[in-house]
């Protein structure tokens, strides 16, 4: 009896270990659904709405890939992951891609064996403090208690920042953004630190957002982007060029409103034609339908539309485009050409 239990457990463990295979595109097609790893809830980036439907900037990325691959923007299974579980989820094959405010770093790319497929948000780490505390600079935070999500780059930046400035702090490790928000509002920490975009998104959900200030210092570079496993370059290409398609669409003025019309027949602009599949074979090269980019853009709009509807200045989160403007407008968002 005892032995049979052990054997059973071994079998299950072995099967689970065998799940990560190479051809992700085939797996996704066979399943009919894209498994996409997102945060456990960060308004504006990825959070379920009142009806339980996931929405947000990162969610839009997942939906665009699902639309490009499966032709259906709703064929996505969203897997909420914490800062600690996300990489294991991706490496083990539990999710096909991560779109989860994840910073592109050397060690994650090289040592953790992931492939970052681009940057969809240029961010930096900031601090939020209650206005009543009267703190105007992060360097005034000597001796403060700081809430910090464990297993993130922000945790390492925090240690570096305080060490470099020779000031002390007391870290309070937390698992999720919701937990950090709760501890911060209860006053268990003097300040909460994460990516500035995340702070803005979190502040937007506070009862009195005006009582809290985000300090001017941005203490790190946090290029956030979607990532996939090493070793399946075809799948990596699909995610990378879906993101590029959304960026290029904004640059060329292709929106969710006019994409159907532009895709109906060849237009005067050859790059638009190549992007939308009315000219050339770009879709087939990716192993997708010719109109993959049309579906991806129709799913949630181009990069600019995704930004404006989820985190832009007209939303409660109110982030300016800043670094995330198109390169033509002084930002860093730049797609290689569709050629």
């Amino acid at each position: 009896m005892k032995k049979s239990v052990i054997l059973g457990a071994l079998t299950v463990a072995g099967l689970a270990a065998g799940a990560a295979s190479a051809a992700t595109l085939d797996d996704v097609r066979a399943r009919g659904k894209l498994n996409c790893g997102v945060t456990t809830g960060l308004t504006g980036f990825a959070a379920p709405d009142a009806n339980g439907v996931w929405e947000g900037f990162d969610v839009g990325m997942c939906r665009a890939v699902a639309a490009a691959v499966l032709g259906d923007a709703t064929a996505v299974e969203f897997v909420p992951t914490t800062g600690q579980t996300r990489f294991t989820a991706l490496a083990s094959g539990e999710v096909d891609m991560l779109a989860r405010n994840t910073t592109w770093t050397f060690s994650r790319d090289v040592d953790l064996k992931f492939e970052f497929t681009g940057v969809n948000y240029y961010d930096g780490q900031g601090f939020i403090v209650p206005r009543s505390l009267g703190v105007s600079s992060a360097k005034d935070l000597d001796g403060a208690t700081v809430c910090i999500q464990t297993g993130t780059t922000t945790e390492l930046n925090l240690a570096d920042f305080f060490r470099a400035n020779n000031i002390s702090y007391e870290p309070v490790p937390i698992e999720t953004n919701a937990e950090g928000q709760q501890l911060y509002l209860a006053g268990s920490c003097d300040t909460y630190t994460t990516d500035a975009s995340g702070l803005a998104a979190t502040r937007a959900t506070f009862e009195n957002p005006g009582d809290h200030v985000i300090l001017p210092e941005i203490i790190s570079k946090e290029p956030l982007g979607p990532l996939v496993r090493h070793g399946d370059n075809e799948w990596g290409d699909i995610v990378r060029w879906t993101l590029n398609a959304l960026v290029t669409a904004e640059e060329l003025g292709v929106t969710s409103a006019n994409v159907a019309e532009l895709a109906a027949g060849p237009t005067g602009n050859p790059e638009v034609n190549r992007l939308l599949g009315t000219e050339g074979e770009l879709g087939a090269m990716l192993g997708l339908e010719a109109d993959w980019a049309v579906k991806a853009i129709a799913a949630g709009g181009n990069y600019g539309e995704l930004f404006e509807t989820n985190i832009g200045e007209n939303t409660p989160i109110g982030l300016a485009r800043g670094l995330n403007a198109q390169w033509t407008e002084g930002g860093l968002i730049y797609s290689p050409p569709f050629r």
Partner: peptide, 9 residues
């Protein structure tokens, strides 16, 4: 089991 695993993979 948490941070170290996460930072080093």
């Amino acid at each position: 089991g948490g941070i170290t695993i996460n930072q080093t993979g």
